[in-house]
Simulated scan of single mutants.
Amino acid sequence: MHPDTPSPPGDPTRSVLRMADVGFDAPAALLDRFGLQLRHVAPGEAIPGSFWGDEEAGIIGTTVYARDDTPVHSLLHEAGHLIVLPANRRPDVHTDATDSIEEEDATCYLQIVLADGLPGVGRERLMRDMDAWGYSFRLGSTRAWFEHDAENARDFLKSRNLPHA
């Protein structure tokens, strides 16, 4: 199946972009702009700080952990959690960084915006991958939420001078 061919929503076996598809250099440079580090975890090793386990990215302090099989959307989501936090709270983070629905919404929005900073990814592809993975939004799709129901997330990001467009 071509990677851009849609699959049924919630089917994580579909071909979402993985870190092996985009490499680690561009994501590391993107995270560095926000004072974060990206650590490459060896194949088969457990990902430190992963909330969901398996191939999902992990966070500890200012470091985001990922393997080659980690979905790009997962890396950007976990990095987004750290980015929306005030810098003085980041060192205390281990595995779970969300304190509120507002932060979670802002993180989802930010991961979409950040995708434009990765060659070969972009927001359109990331939103399709989020839908395929099973992210759930009340308007039915990531795109519908992003375009029509995410004012609170944009306001949250704007108030903290974070990317929001």
Rank of each mutant, 00 (worst) to 15 (best):
Y65Q: 11
P48C: 13
V64M: 04
Y65R: 13
D21S: 11
R39P: 14
F24T: 02
V22Y: 13
V22L: 07
L38V: 12
E55P: 02
H40S: 15
R39G: 11
L38Q: 10
G44P: 01
G58Y: 03
A28Q: 14
H40L: 01
V41N: 11
Q37C: 15
P48A: 08
L30V: 05
G49Q: 00
S50A: 03
G23M: 05
A28L: 05
D25F: 11
T63E: 10
A29Y: 12
A28R: 13
G35P: 10
A66F: 00
I47W: 07
A57P: 13
G61I: 05
P48Q: 09
T62F: 15
G35N: 15
E55G: 09
F24D: 07
F51D: 00
P43N: 04
V41R: 07
A46P: 15
T63L: 06
D21G: 06
L38A: 12
A26M: 13
W52V: 01
L30G: 15
A66G: 06
A46S: 14
F34V: 14
D25A: 05
D25H: 09
R39A: 02
G58H: 07
A42M: 14
A29Q: 13
A42G: 12
D54R: 08
D21Q: 09
G58A: 08
D25M: 09
L30Q: 11
F24G: 03
I59N: 02
P27F: 05
R39Y: 07
A26N: 08
G44C: 12
F34E: 06
H40E: 06
A46F: 08
A66P: 02
P27S: 13
A28W: 15
G61C: 13
F24R: 00
Q37W: 14
L31F: 08
V41D: 04
R33K: 12
G49I: 03
V41T: 02
E45F: 00
E56W: 05
D54M: 03
A42R: 10
L31V: 03
G23T: 08
L31C: 03
G61Y: 12
Y65N: 11
L31T: 11
A29T: 15
E45K: 11
A46M: 04
A42H: 01
E56H: 09
F24S: 00
I60M: 01
E45T: 08
W52R: 03
A29E: 04
E56T: 10
L36P: 03
G61E: 04
Y65D: 05
G23N: 04
E56Q: 06
G23H: 03
L38P: 14
L31A: 05
G53Q: 06
W52L: 11
D21P: 09
E55N: 07
R39E: 15
Q37G: 15
F24Q: 02
A26H: 09
I60W: 02
D21Y: 06
T63P: 07
V64R: 10
D25L: 13
P27K: 12
H40M: 09
T63H: 01
A42F: 02
G49N: 07
G44Y: 04
T63M: 03
